[in-house]
Amino acid sequence: MERNIREEFSKRLTRALGKEFSLRWETDSKGVITGWCRLHDARHITNVALIVAELGGRVITITAYKTKDEQQRDNHEIAYHFDLDGCTCTVTIEIPWDCGKVNSITPILKSADWTERELQELYGIQLVGHPNPKRLFLDDSIDEGIMNKLIPLSVAMQGATTKTLWEKVFAAISNEGDAE
């Protein structure tokens, strides 16, 4: 079954995108197949979503992340993790920093709904055509794209907790010193 769906996915992808993608499959020691695909043009993600929908697949999740492009400029990439009858296929696209937009696939695959909203609020990548693009978890008082920024760990962890912990550590160390 998995083998058929893998071939079917590759065939349909070639028919829709020609040579505008790269795709490889890995099989682990348990025989589980994982696909890794990269699209040359980010706009083609809707074509991929249509193929996944036709094959009865779903979105497992979507990962956005900050990275560098070939010229070492800041860049975003989005990895879409699709399920094709137990086989996970990750399809990655690049979103140039100055573009900051991506076509929503939620109208095609409902399972992308929350995870698209989350990547929008965390990385500030605008969704085009999402039926309900409002905030998911973050309060409006927090800037969109918070994951693009550097937040010191002490702030992220709330200084109070850290301070209390260190006071305990210092107290323990000074007691040890007294004993010696």
Binding site: K30, I60, D85
Partner: peptide, 29 residues
């Protein structure tokens, strides 16, 4: 199927996407 639900919620509606069977890991194979 449309909402992509998983686990006992999916299986209560007759959808089997149990990872232990669909993509075995550890000793499940």
């Amino acid at each position: 199927l449309r909402y992509g639900v998983v686990g006992p919620v999916a299986r209560g509606s007759g959808v089997n996407n149990d990872v232990r069977v669909k993509s075995p890991y550890a000793a499940y194979d």
